[in-house]
Amino acid sequence: MITLEGVTKQFGTVEAVRGVDATIREGEITVLIGPSGCGKSTLLRMINRMIEPSSGRISISGEDVRNTPPELLRRRIGYVIQNVGLFPHYTVFENISVVPRLLGWKRPRIEERVTELLDLMGLERSFAQKKPRELSGGEAQRVGVARALAANPPLLLMDEPFGAVDPQNRARLQTEFDRIQKQLRKTVVFVTHDVEEAIRLADRIAVMRDGRLVGHSSPEDFIRQSAPPFISEFLGADYSLNLLARHRLRDHYRPTRGTARGTGNPTLPETASVKEAVALLVTRQLRELTVHDEAGAVLGTFTLDCIKNLFGGESGGS
C-alpha cells in the first residue's frame, strides 16, 4: 500500500503537483490519468524518488520513502517508461538482469529468472542473446516489462509504457499485461492519457488536473456517483459504453430454467463482453438475446435491464 499525504512539487514558480492525498491499494492497478501537464508523471516519479517532493510525505507499506537511499529504494520498485529505455549496448539477457545483478544475485539464479520472464512475456528464449535494435517496438516493450519484473518487486511504476506502440500492438500488450497481472497481483501505478487504456486495465482510476487529484475511484463509480463536469468531459460521452467492455456476459444475464431454444433471438457465448451484447442489440434493433455456454447449452437471456445495476449502484434506480 502506498500512502500519499499532502504531496506537493514545485518547479521554480510552477506547482506541478499540489497537495495530493491518496491511498493506493495493494495488488491493484491504479491508473493515473489526466491531460498532459497535469502532473501525473511527476507524481509517479516521486514514488521512487526520481523527483523529490517539495513537501508532503510518501510512504510504502507504512515506511517513508525518504528513509531508504534512492538507489536501494528503486531496486525494489519495477520501473517501465514510455520509450522503454533498453540499454542498446546490452543483450536482452543483460538488460533483464540489470537489477538482479545490482542486487548481487548468483549467475544460475539470474539465468533461471530470465528464462522464466521470457516465457511469461511470451517471448522466445532465443531472444535472450538479441540486441535491443533487433527487436520490434512491441517486443522491446515486453522486454522492458520483463526487466522491471526481474527482481520480483511488489510494486511496479509504469509511465505510459505502451504509449509509443501502434494501436494494434498496444491492445495486445494491454491484454497480455492484464493476464500477467491477474497471475502476479502486483501493486501497479500506471500513468496514461488514454481513457480506453485506463478502462481496460484499471482497478482504480485517479484523475488529475492542474496538479490536483480530482477524482479517485473504481471505473464504474465515476458513473454511479455523478462525476464533476471536468471528469465526465475528460472521460468522454462514450465512457459508459466503453466501460461495458470490462464486463463479461456471464455475470449479467437472467437465467432461464428449462429450454428456450426456438425464440429466434441471436445468441452470444457467456464469455462475450457486455459491450458486444449491447452492440448486437442496437444493430439488430432487438430487446433481448440468448446467452449460451461453451458447450452451446442455453443459460438465459440478456436485456438492457440486466446491466441497470452496473451504473445505478446497489440501491438500484433506473
Partner: peptide, 8 residues
C-alpha cells in the same frame, strides 16, 4: 532515466 530508475 531507466538506468537511474532501476537503482544504479
Amino acid at each position: 532515466d531507466a538506468a537511474s530508475g532501476m537503482g544504479m
